[in-house]
Amino acid sequence: ISTPTHWSKLDPKTMKVNDLRKELESRALSSKGLKSQLIARLTKQLKVEE
């Protein structure tokens, strides 16, 4: 399991699906679903981290 990238360095809308999945997995979140779902899930988590 990798260390999550700091929230300020991430822009989920421009990330590739593989990168989105890695970030979600490093935060112990589900990495299953469509790209739009991955973006929404990661965006929501990054707002919590701010």
Rank of each mutant, 00 (worst) to 15 (best):
Q45T: 10
K16M: 06
S31D: 08
K44A: 08
H6D: 13
D19L: 13
L10T: 03
K22N: 10
S2A: 11
L20E: 01
S8V: 05
E49I: 00
K13A: 10
T43W: 07
K44R: 12
K9Y: 08
V17I: 13
T43S: 12
S8D: 09
S36L: 08
K9T: 09
Q37Y: 05
L34Q: 13
L42S: 03
R27H: 02
K47Y: 05
W7I: 06
L29K: 06
T14S: 13
S2H: 12
K35W: 04
P4S: 15
D19G: 07
S36C: 09
E50D: 03
W7L: 06
E25I: 05
S36A: 09
N18K: 15
Q37I: 03
K35G: 04
Q45A: 12
E23A: 04
D11L: 11
N18I: 15
V17S: 12
K35I: 06
Q37P: 06
E50K: 05
H6K: 13
L38Q: 04
V17N: 15
S30R: 13
T3W: 06
T43M: 10
K22S: 13
V48L: 11
P12Q: 02
R41Q: 04
I39N: 05
S31N: 10
W7K: 08
Q37C: 12
Q37E: 14
G33Q: 01
S2G: 13
K13W: 04
A40S: 12
A28S: 15
L42I: 06
V48G: 08
K35Y: 05
R21N: 04
Q37G: 06
I1E: 05
P4F: 10
L38C: 04
P4W: 08
L24C: 04
A28V: 12
K32A: 08
L34S: 12
P4M: 14
L42M: 07
D11Y: 12
L46M: 12
S8R: 07
D19C: 12
A40K: 04
H6E: 14
E25H: 02
I39G: 05
L20S: 01
V48F: 13
S36V: 10
I1N: 05
R21D: 00
L10Q: 03
D19S: 14
D11R: 15
N18P: 14
P4D: 10
K32D: 10
K13M: 13
M15C: 03
M15R: 02
R27E: 01
L20V: 05
L24F: 01
P4R: 15
R27F: 00
W7T: 10
T3Q: 07
H6C: 11
T14V: 12
K44F: 04
K22G: 06
K9Q: 14
I39D: 05
M15D: 01
S2M: 15
S36F: 07
R21V: 09
V17Y: 11
L42T: 03
R21L: 06
P12D: 00
I39F: 03
E23I: 00
K13G: 06
L46T: 04
R21G: 03
K9G: 08
L42Q: 03
S31L: 10
R41I: 04
L10P: 03
S36H: 07
A28P: 01
Q45G: 04
W7Q: 05
S2C: 13
H6G: 09
S26H: 14
T5V: 10
Q37K: 09
D11T: 15
N18L: 15
L38D: 05
S30Q: 08
R41G: 03
A40V: 09
L10M: 09
T3M: 13
T3C: 12
T43A: 13
H6N: 14
V17M: 14
K9L: 11
S26Q: 13
K35E: 10
K16P: 08
R27K: 01
T43C: 11
K9I: 06
E49G: 00
N18H: 14
A28Q: 15
E23L: 00
V17F: 11
K9H: 10
K22P: 03
K32E: 10
P12H: 01
A40E: 15
A28L: 14
R27C: 01
L24N: 00
S30Y: 08
D11C: 15
T14E: 13
S2F: 15
W7N: 05
K16Q: 04
L29H: 05
K22W: 07
E49P: 01
E25R: 08
V48T: 10
S30A: 11
L24T: 02
S31V: 12
D11N: 14
V48P: 01
K32I: 07
S26N: 13
T14L: 09
S31Y: 09
L10V: 06
Q37A: 13
S30C: 14
S2W: 10
R41L: 05
S2I: 15
L29P: 01
E25Y: 01
Q37S: 11
R27I: 00
V48I: 14
P12C: 06
L34T: 11
S2T: 15
P12M: 08
L42H: 03
L10Y: 02
D19P: 05
T3P: 08
R41F: 01
N18Q: 15
L24W: 00
K44E: 08
K35N: 06
I1A: 14
K35C: 04
R21K: 09
D19E: 05
K13H: 08
R21S: 07
K47A: 08
K32F: 06
S2N: 15
K44N: 10
E49N: 00
T3F: 09
S8K: 11
M15A: 03
K44C: 04
I39E: 10
K16Y: 08
W7R: 07
S30H: 08
V48Y: 07
R21P: 02
L38Y: 01
K22M: 12
E49Q: 03
R27T: 00
R21C: 12
S2Y: 15
L29D: 02
S26F: 13
N18M: 14
S36W: 09
G33R: 00
E23G: 00
L38F: 01
L20C: 04
K32H: 11
L29T: 05
P12G: 02
L42V: 02
L46Q: 05
R21W: 03
S30I: 07
K32M: 09
L42N: 03
T5Q: 10
I1R: 04
K9N: 08
A28K: 15
E25W: 05
K9D: 10
L34Y: 12
K16L: 11
D19Q: 14
E50N: 05
A40L: 10
E49W: 00
L34D: 11
L42P: 04
E23H: 04
I39T: 11
K16V: 06
T5S: 14
L34P: 13
R41C: 03
S8W: 05
W7C: 09
K13N: 15
P12T: 07
E49C: 03
S31T: 11
E50A: 06
R27Y: 00
V48D: 09
H6T: 11
Q37R: 07
V48N: 14
S31C: 13
K44Q: 06
K16T: 08
L38I: 05
K35A: 05
K47N: 09
T14K: 15
T43K: 15
K35L: 06
L29W: 02
K13P: 07
S2V: 14
L29M: 12
I39Q: 10
I39S: 07
E25F: 03
